[in-house]
Design a protein around this nucleic acid. Structure first.
Lengths: 205, 205
DNA sequence: GACTTTTTCGACGTACTGTCGAGAAGCAAC
DNA sequence: GTTGCTTCTCGACAGTACGTCGAAAAAGTC
């Protein structure tokens, strides 16, 4: 499943070590940013030597990928009603954003660290691009439906607009000290981006 | 003026070295991200040893700060008409965003590198916060004026909304392969964020 | 040409990363 | 209970990059 270097299989002692490393990473990420965490600390937390760490993971990034793997499912959680719906459904959008904000509150350092390290680290870049594409795809489709139904004004190409909304979410939640506090305003702003019209159509660029 | 370690004064040979280091940094930044540039390369480009580099700059970050210092003036250029104006003035906004997009096109690696390194690097964090605050202050004031004049709908607190717009700009321009291409859509989207109303007022969060 | 300031650099110490190979520990089966 | 396998451990090593120090060369001044 994952790309572990040495392990074969079996629920042995090594599994506990692997979990200990992941748990140590979680604990440390609650205290300081990813960039400040060294492999020494990860190994020490799991009570093994630094060399032994490499028996379980190829690098610090591999640990991050494993942690991300564990929360990837939560990233889109509660977004279904919003993304599969139609029209300016503030309640559904709020539900999706609240869920996302909670994830950022709990896993902010992990997500921020992963996004920061993504350029110059293929596996993380791939994860980020995948997450983004998944969201953009569904949101762009929603935009097309709404426009076809006359529920949303014309404007930027659906995929571009969806990308901008994704950018805004990520940047805002990553920068917020209390992500949940931002949800109400994000709902307002995203709905305006999608449905807001004020008589001035965009001029071609 | 700046925090150079060894230099006293005088337009001597050292000044050429300093310029050579800055120029080397510019050249390298045109080719690869900041994180991939080492002090060895900077020194080699200026034809001095690595040790000598430290006579001119305290660190790689000090070079970045010097480069940023050189373009800080351009960051707000052409934003005046928009920020000091009133109402949904698409032309003025387009002017401001075009100017900004050109800066990102030319100095994208520098800006992206600086923003990426800002967490965990006080001088860069200070620069970033200063730039952001300058923009947010003026934009928030504009929002207040527009709302007082009944030109803009109520919504998120002016400073919050301004912050979201700043986040969006930065994230979008940083991620774009061709920033200028994005200007038209950014104009539309920012105007919607500020003026877009569609009968659904934001619910308190 | 003595004196000061500016500039240069090699040598050193530090921090972190990743690899290698020897071998200990755990767990069969005989 | 010792042979033989896999799992696991670690010390030693090599590499890269950073930043400091002090000796001394180069440049500038009188």
């Amino acid at each position: 499943m994952s790309t572990l270097p040495g392990r074969r299989r079996g629920p042995s002692k090594g599994d506990r070590r692997e979990q200990a490393i992941l748990e140590t990473a979680r604990v440390l990420l609650a205290r300081k940013p990813l960039a400040d965490i060294t492999i020494d600390e990860l190994a020490a937390g799991a009570e093994i030597s630094r060399s032994s760490f490499y028996f379980y993971f190829d690098s610090k990034i591999a640990v991050v990928v494993a942690l991300l793997h564990g929360i990837t499912g939560e990233l889109g959680r509660d977004a279904g009603p919003w993304l599969d719906g139609t029209g300016p459904d503030a309640g559904a959008l709020r539900q999706a954003l609240t869920s996302l904000a909670v994830l950022w509150r709990d896993q902010g350092r992990l997500l921020a660290g992963a996004l920061a390290a993504a350029p110059g680290c293929p596996p993380l870049a791939q994860w980020r691009d995948g997450m983004r594409a998944a969201h953009v795809d569904r949101l762009a489709a929603r935009i097309e439906r709404d426009r076809a139904a006359g529920l949303a004004p014309d404007g930027p190409a659906p995929r571009v607009l969806a990308g901008l909304i994704d950018d805004l979410r990520t940047a805002a939640l990553a920068g917020a000290s209390d992500p949940e506090e931002l949800v109400g305003d994000l709902v307002t702003v995203e709905l305006r981006m999608l449905y807001g019209d004020f008589g001035v159509s965009h001029s071609a660029g």
